[in-house]
Amino acid sequence: MTKLKINNRIYDLALKGHETLLEVLRDILGLTGTKTACDEAECGACTVLINGKAILSCITLAMDVENDDITTIEGISSGDDLHPIQQAFLDKGAVQCGFCAPGFILSTKALLDENPRPDLDEIKKSLDGHLCRCGGYLKIFDAIEDAAKKLRNE
């Protein structure tokens, strides 16, 4: 049995070994917040956090991340309250169709947890692994700057 710790909950799974983390999340556990928009590790829609770092779940073997701390989009709000990053994405109009949003939000969390005061270039670079076709990215930058301020209690 493989133990996966996802959003602070332990799942005991009988895996065969070739399952990607993405497959486990979406198809086995029904956590469909994590999306995928390509088959080539280019779109970033499958991004989850492993030990706080943004990684692509479509090219991560589930058995490779046994005992690691896995965070998906389902795990960052607490109770009824949205995480300030989620709130900022809504407030700044950074979400249109929403398909790419979970990936962006998690990468943002990884960025701000490590660097509470990113400049615009650092923000842009941290998102270089994500595709958004609807929005053109600018409102996402606004949302991240807004979330950073709120997290710094400014």
């Binding site: 469909t32 917040g33 994590t34 389902e74 949205l82 709130q87 809504l90 979400v95 929403g98 979970p102």
Partner: peptide
């Protein structure tokens, strides 16, 4: 919007 940022939609 809420469901989009929580991944629930």
């Amino acid at each position: 919007g809420r469901g989009l940022v929580t991944g629930q939609t």
